[in-house]
């Protein structure tokens, strides 16, 4: 029986979660939301995390109703992510690990999403589409590595959505992506946008520039409404993601697809992926906003798997890194 506590703060979400043998005992979270038209900056984000981390930690422990002595392993996001926010949370994890005299493990944020997705959905060996504000990767497990089959060659899909939300000055509450999704539901007219797939990879910067440049002109002319633009953007970028996912599935002969990461909450993306999966006779797995969006429990889950398979981390290695490739980690808990 392993009880793990996980600390996540690589972007604007601060989450602390406790997992006992695959059961989520608590998973509180706070989101740093900036005013419409603004993105979040590292320093302010780190400050947000510092300001609420102790409160969230208390909530996690109280909700889980466990004693800190019972904790087997303390886990934190080693990377990838934004420097200052990552460190602001790592410092707390290191402190409590020393205080409670528990081992500490640094976890890869992407792998945490995958492991949480597998735990919650029960998917055995899926092709994974990991999509968030900072990452866009198609991943498949092979020989002790989560291998990246396809990815964005420039910006992440979530980043593309967030920046477009800024152009339209949409609210960042609860998230820009969520608001684009709601607007898109009311969109009807389709504007053709640059669709860029290169082999198994995608590119969004051209599409973003295109729509940034034309949005105001097109809205002013009355040809398209903001809802139409949100609709067109989603239909295009999601189709690109589905295409590269399908290519990876065809390549690997996979019958399962799992969507993880913040953008994975999007119901339209899930719907489209479901249609593709059906046509291939494959099964779609997806989670809800508790687990799609960055959270502490996913860090605890991945850390728990690492711990149970015997991984340990020397103190010197418990640092943070902004760049941390999914395929750098040896997946010792799967064969």
């Amino acid at each position: 029986m392993v009880i793990a506590i996980g600390f996540e703060g690589s972007a604007n979400k601060l989450g602390i979660g406790i997992i006992k043998d695959g059961v989520v005992l608590s998973n509180p979270r706070r989101t740093y939301i900036t005013p419409p038209g603004q993105g979040f900056l590292p320093r302010d984000t780190a400050k947000h995390h510092q300001d609420c981390v102790l409160e969230v930690l208390k909530e996690a422990l109280d909700t889980a109703k466990i004693d800190t002595n019972d904790i087997d392993i303390v886990c934190y996001t080693k990377g990838p992510g934004m420097g200052a926010p990552l460190v602001s949370v790592a410092v707390v994890a290191r402190t409590v690990a020393q205080l409670w005299k528990k081992p500490l493990l640094g976890v890869n944020h992407c792998i945490a999403h995958i492991e949480m997705g597998r735990l919650i959905t029960g998917a055995q060996n899926p092709t994974v589409l990991y999509v968030s504000g900072g990452n866009t990767q198609v991943i498949s497990y092979s020989q002790r590595r989560y291998r990246i089959f396809g990815e964005t060659i420039d910006i992440a899909v979530g980043n593309c959505l967030d920046r477009f939300a800024r152009v339209l000055k949409l609210s960042n509450n609860p998230s820009p992506g969520y608001n684009i999704e709601q607007m898109a539901k009311r969109g009807k007219k389709f504007l053709e946008l640059p669709y860029v797939v290169k082999g198994m990879d995608v590119s969004f910067s051209g599409l973003l520039s295109f729509i940034e440049e034309r949005a105001n002109q097109v809205l002013e002319s009355g040809e398209f409404t903001p809802e139409d633009l949100c609709f067109s953007l989603q239909e295009t970028i999601f189709a690109m993601l589905i295409e590269i996912t399908e290519r990876a599935m065809a390549h690997c002969g996979s019958q399962e697809v799992l969507i993880v990461g913040g953008v994975g909450c999007n119901k339209r993306l899930q719907e489209m992926m479901g249609i593709m999966a059906d046509e291939r006779g494959a099964k779609l797995f997806a989670t809800d906003e508790r687990f799609c969006i960055d959270n502490g429990a996913m860090i605890a889950q991945a850390g728990s798997e690492m711990f149970r398979s015997g991984q340990t981390m020397a103190w010197e290695d418990t640092f943070c890194t902004q760049r941390y490739r999914t395929d750098e980690v040896e997946v010792t808990w799967r064969d």
């Binding site: 604007n12 993105g39 990838p80 504000g133 900072g134 980043n159 967030d162 902004q322 760049r323």
Partner: peptide, 13 residues
């Protein structure tokens, strides 16, 4: 340069 991009990607808020 392209090979490094994957390793260099930073999150922008």
């Amino acid at each position: 340069e392209i090979r490094m991009r994957g390793r260099k990607r930073t999150m922008v808020g």
